[in-house]
Amino acid sequence: MNYTFQWGQVTGHIPYLAGGAMIALQLAFFGFAIGMVVGALCAATKAYGPKAARRLVDAYVSFFTNTPLLVQIFFLYYGLPDAGIFLDSYQAVLVGISLNAGAYLTEIQRAGFMSVRRTELDAAATLGFSRLQMIRYVVVPHLLKTLYAPLANHYIVMVLGTSIAAIFGVEELTGRALNVNAINFRSFEIFSIAAGMYITLTIAASASLYWFGLYAFRIKAKVF
């Protein structure tokens, strides 16, 4: 063991790495937001849509949950140009992450749709609730509550998953760590700092989701 730590050579790069962390967070956030919309539409289609549309959703979900995210992004980045569609690396990664998330979030949200209690809706109806009031006061709170923990967990997984973007040259946290490493080869220090930043990101996300969930829906999402 004659490796001497040279933290001094990397501390100067911390703001640059932190900027990468922000890009990672951004990818996760937008990917999650788009995935939620896609997932909600697909879950609603699976619950109420015509048969052909349900089949289509099934095909989409099983394709994206049964192939690696990396392959999906490869396809978007290198495959689509053959079809005349050109995405830059950031776009390809974002679209890939979003479609992947959409498939998983379809399944999660569908479980929520199935679990709304008929009995509470009966009670609401006999108390004179309108359709809109039922959705607002009974269905939505129920969905948020049952879906909160699995959604929060998926979001955390997505934050870490953004490191895949580095492979396509997107300069998020991992990409920037690779850049710094190429300059001074202080690999241990650089990747410890990057790891520390990922841990900070996920703990910050978990903790804020935890407190928010506890406050808003009285539920405990998983922190670790």
Partner: peptide
């Protein structure tokens, strides 16, 4: 109802108050 059918996301007080407040 036999199974009470309370709104699980509301306190006892809100269960009682919601219809008079929001419906009425």
């Amino acid at each position: 109802f036999q199974q009470y059918n309370l709104f699980q996301n509301m306190t006892a007080l809100d269960n009682v108050a919601i219809a008079p407040l929001k419906v009425k």
